[in-house]
Structure formats: C-alpha cells, structure tokens
Design a binder for these strands. Structure first.
Lengths: 91, 91
DNA sequence: GCAATAACTTACCCAAATGTAATATACATA
DNA sequence: TATGTATATTACATTTGGGTAAGTTATTGC
C-alpha cells in the first residue's frame, strides 16, 4: 500500500480525520498539491480501501471523500506523525 | 526531514530501536537495501539528528549506529507503523 | 608482495514520483 | 451562444529515489 514512500497520502488522510469533505474543499486544505497529484492520490487511497468516494449526480459535480473504517484505523499513526511535526504534515 | 516519502529511513530506524548496531549487522537486517542506499540513508538520518555514528579506529573498520534521543522519540510512530503492517516495515 | 576485511564512495543509468498545462464534461444561466 | 462551475484526465517534462558495479582505504596475516 505504500503509505510511506509517497508525499501526499498521509496529508490527505490527515485532513479527512475530522470528517468527510467535498473534493474542492479538501484540495484547498492541501496547498501545494497539484491538480493531478490530488486526484491521483485519491484514486490510490480509494483502491487501498482507505477512503470512500461519494458522487452526487448534480451540476456542477459534487464529490465527497471520507475515511473508511480501515482508513480511520490509521488515526493513531497520522496523529503521531502530526504531533511529531513531520514536515509533510505541517503544511 | 521527510521521514515519510522515503523507502528506507523508517526501516533503518526501526531496527535500531532495540539498541545500537554495527554497520554490517544493521545492513543485514534490511535485506534488499543496496550498499549505496544504506550509507546514503544513514548519512541523512545523521544529518537529521536521529542517529549517532560512532567510529572505532581499528582495522578493519568498525562503525556503530544508534538512535539519538530525538530518534528514540520516534518510537511510537515506528511501532505503530509496524503494528499496522505497513508494507515497508514487513520485510 | 598480495589477498582479505569492513565500511564507504563514485560514476553511470533507469524508473517512479511529481509538476505543468491544457483539455473534457454537463448543465445552468446571463 | 458563450461562459462559469466542480471535478477530473491526459500528454509531456522534470526531479529524485534507487540499483549496479567498480573502486578506495588502511591494516593484518599468509
């Protein structure tokens, strides 16, 4: 799954700890992430079974991401990374 | 510091949790790491202030690595990564 | 003299991660 | 008809992690 060895995954997960978010809002919480890496990271996390993707059939599109149970189980790790002041979680 | 975003750093630190080790022995605990990445990773960790490097002026050379206090403070993170079964810590 | 030893280092190369920028979709509305 | 909107994808370039293999050092012992 490679949570480690990737720049953005932990960051994305961290911002979902407080609850699900709309795509756009989540992205704004991660300054510096490119459009591409944002969706690419989400796709991977979804494939890893760590997040849910919920699409609302409206226009313009609305998509919400939230942690799965498995994703939530990472909370201790994500919080300790944050507490420790890991660069990648500071942004 | 980028503990995350690198393949080997957490692994090296993890194996030092139980105490300092000679270079060669530490390397053997990390199958798959190349000679180059091994020393390169150690240099980075040393620069990050996470490990100590102690050289014994003997022949053939003897070098021991151990965690600094700062490095030891990562123990909860390293252990939870391991407990979670992170791929990189399974080897 | 010459091989063996432990710990590195260096040159060279490839592949994977990431960045940039343009484009797509589908409908509402001015 | 043209524009805005939120989400996403694609092609292309660049950066960086990582591998391989050979060379370095300084001594001991055959």
């Amino acid at each position: 799954m490679n949570l480690i060895g990737t720049k953005w995954k932990p960051l994305v997960l961290f911002h979902l700890l407080e609850g699900g978010l709309r795509s756009g809002i989540l992205q704004k919480k991660i300054p510096g992430i490119s459009n591409k890496m944002f969706t690419q990271t989400l796709r991977q996390l979804e494939k890893d079974g760590l997040i849910n993707r919920k699409v609302f059939p409206v226009v313009p599109p609305k998509v919400e991401y939230s942690l799965t149970e498995r994703g939530t189980s990472l909370e201790p790790i994500l919080r300790s990374l944050d507490a420790w002041g890991m660069e990648d979680c500071k942004r």
